[in-house]
Every structure is written in C-alpha cells, then in structure tokens.
Design a protein around this nucleic acid. Structure first.
Lengths: 159, 159
DNA sequence: TATTGTTATACTCTATAACTATA
DNA sequence: TATAGTTATAGAGTATAACAATA
C-alpha cells in the first residue's frame, strides 16, 4: 500500500511493465470470460480469422507458444465448436485451421468487448499517446528477435 | 515468423505489452542470473534496501505478491545470506527485514547490471520516450487500484 | 532423415485454506 | 478475536523429450 516508498524500482521498465500487464490481463480476461475465452484463446481466434487455413505450427510461431501447448488450447476451441481442424489434402500430417460460423460470431462479439476494455484501460491517455505506447512496446519486442541474427552490437541475451 | 499477417491483434495494448514483457523478462532474468537473482528477488532486495526494517507483510503488499509466496522467496534470500530476518522486539510475531553486507553489495552490483539492461532494452527510444513509456505504464497500473474505491465511473473489473 | 501433430511430464508462478505463535 | 508468518497444496502457464503418421 505504501506507494511512496519503493521509488527505486519504479525507474525501471521491467517492474512497471509487469505491473501494468497484470492490471490489463486481469481486466481483459474478466472481459473475455463472458465469451468463454482468455487472452491466448482470443488471440488464436484473431489470427485464424485473418489467416484462414493456416497450420498449427504456423499459428504456434505467430503466437510464440510451443506446439504442445497449442494442441490443448485448440482442443478447447474445437470442443467449443469455435474452430475447424481440417486435414490438409496436400500434406496429410497437417491440419488447416479455420473458424466455424459460431467461432466467427463469438470472435466478433468479443472483439467489441476487447475494444471497450482497451478504451477503459487507456482512459487517461490521448490517442497519440496510445499509438506511441504501442509503437514503443513493439520496438522493445523487436529487441528479442535479435537472437538468431548476426549479433555483434549490444544484442539481447539468447538464453 | 510471418509477422505481417497478424495485424489485428497488434492494435491492442494487451497483446503488445505481453510480448514486450516477455522480451524484457528474458533479458532481465539472464542479467540477474549472474548474481543468483530473478526479477522478484532483485525487487525484494531493492525495497528492503530502501525500507530497512520493514515487515514481511508490508513487503508483500508493496510487491503485490501473496504472503505465502513471499516466505519461500525470503527463505531463498536468507539462505544466500543476502537478508536478515530479525524478530521485532515490540511485536514478536513479526520479522524486521534488512540487507546483510553481502546483500547490499550484491544488490549494488546487480543494480548496475540492471541499468545496463535497461539501456539495452530501450535502445531505440529517446530519454523523453522512456520517461513517457514508464509514465503511461504507471497510469495503466493505477487503473487496477480503482477496485476497492467508490466505483461508479467506468472502472476496472474487480474479479 | 525431417516434419506435423501429439502425449506425457516437469518446472515456475500464483492463489487459497489452514495451522502456530503471538497480540 | 485478530494478525504475522508459515505450511501444504492446487491451479495456471510454459518448456522439453519422445512418439506415431506422413513427407
């Protein structure tokens, strides 16, 4: 509670971003729970919606989650009749992912709720600030991609 | 890998903040591992350093972690001889936390490493942008505190 | 031999209930 | 009775190894 005391920590990104993310995740997951979704499952629906027919391994790459973990996540979405897993005719090892009609409908409804959540969470910020925030977050995220690259500069840990 | 495809998601804070945090946490924990620390344990050292004598329950409040989880974290720091747990003479249920000499030294060294990490992670950003980023993250975090409050406006989920 | 999806598993983080010793 | 610290435990989230089917 005593918020004036721990000043040192608050100078750093890591600490503040963690706490901000906790707040966002709490509200976002509460928002999505009304649709039986979480951040990850909603993200999966979003990517599938915009890339109908993609494979599980591609989706795992895009969402940066491990294939084994994606499997159980897709099981959940399939059980809820939100997605289809269709065998790829040209490569029978793979599945082509797509949204069901129900899935599309649920995703659209949830999308509106997520937009409302976004407005709620960024309430004190101007439109320019919101754009700037997301732009900066992406620049930070991009630092993590400098792993397999030529390295050399002052690049990020590859552990 | 195909980064041009999942555009819809990237409009939203929640998705971008999660990924940025992952990148930061990976580099930060790799940085702190050289000192036998993680983000949480380093944060604990920081708060104890600046608030010598505080109690475990106060520290748990400040760090927003549950008391039971703090106990094992402090066990770890005590075993490494980085902190002292001294019985409060006026309330023998409580412990007063402080850094050992070793703890202070380790914390200072780690602090320098964390500052280097911070520069690395915010490399493409100007000084004004870094300040603005942290300021916005704190505004978002503050939304989460509007739980026990009077509510009424468009406040955040209290689940 | 390599890849897609899968199973089983383990490790971390986080959250809750119940205990002890003090107050 | 209430509080500080503790114990045990359960649930998420995440990561790796190994397998079957297919390429």
């Amino acid at each position: 509670m005593s918020d004036e005391r721990d000043i040192g920590l608050r100078k750093f990104c890591g600490y503040n971003i963690k706490r901000a993310f906790n707040v966002i995740q709490l509200d976002l997951n509460a928002t999505l729970a009304e649709y039986g979704l979480r951040l990850v499952t909603w993200s999966a629906l979003s990517v599938i919606d915009e890339n109908s027919g993609l494979r599980q391994s591609q989706l795992a790459d895009i969402l940066s989650i491990e294939r084994p973990n994606l499997v159980v996540l897709l099981d959940e979405l399939e059980r809820a009749d939100l997605i289809n897993r269709d065998r790829d005719t040209s490569d029978r090892r793979a599945y082509c992912l797509s949204l069901t009609d129900v899935g599309r409908e649920v995703y659209r409804s949830a999308l509106a709720a997520v937009e409302a959540h976004e407005d709620r969470i960024t309430e004190g910020l101007s439109l320019e600030e919101r754009q700037s925030l997301i732009s900066m977050l992406r620049k930070i995220e991009a630092k993590g991609k400098a792993r397999g690259d030529a390295d050399g500069n002052g690049s990020i840990s590859k552990a």
